[in-house]
Amino acid sequence: MQEINHTGSRTTRLLGAAVIVGLVALVLLGWFVAPEDDDQQDAVRMIFVHVPSAIWTYIAFVTTAIGSVMWLVRRSVWWDTVAAAAAEIGVLFCGLTLFTGSVWGRPTWNTYWDWGDVRLVTTLILFLMMIGYLSVRSLGGPESATATRAAIVGVMAAAILPIVNRSVEWWENNTLHQKSSLTDGNLEDMTLFTLVVGLIVWGLFFWWAILHRFRIAWLEREIRSSDLDRALVERRAEGEPGASPLEERV
């Protein structure tokens, strides 16, 4: 039997290959096939990385919220691990959403950022809350208590997701951001097709990353658990006859 020393599997290899093919297709479609916009000209091509990042941010954080609830209700370690994995990927996507939106904003809105803009700032708050979630997970202490604290932050962050998403409708006069391009917008056929390709590629990457990240978290749990086992064995050995006076003092 061949020794396996990585977190890959047949599924992740297939997903990885699909992501690479998808990204090549997305670059070709997004840069050379999809039409430029009458108003924005080629700046509109930012939509193909910005919108998939935003949509998969929502999906990742909803996954975190579901995992968090499952931990709080059922004490499911599996779901807690899923929640943590999704949160890390969600933070990555959310950061990219903010960055690409900002870069897109300069030529179209005439500004990179506005501190009073309700869509921009609520997205930043969501991003910071999920960084807080990851920080809480890194604080240490008993695993169960850490998972519970993180789960509460995860659920709180998910609670502001509807505010982030609907802010462009609810506070039209507090944001430069246009309404949803996917649900309310008018897109050229090839622009829509390319956007859907982007959403699929981001989804494939999300699944690839969450599988690897889950397995990493699983390995970390195994290592912590074996460290604990070893420490218990050593503790027990301290009390056994023949233990050195030095051990007994400790």
Binding site: E36, Q41, D42, M46, V49, F99, T100, R106, P107
Partner: peptide
């Protein structure tokens, strides 16, 4: 047009 912005946005992603 806007190649610089596109390269920064896509490239960073």
């Amino acid at each position: 047009t806007h190649v610089g912005y596109l390269l920064v946005g896509w490239g960073t992603t």
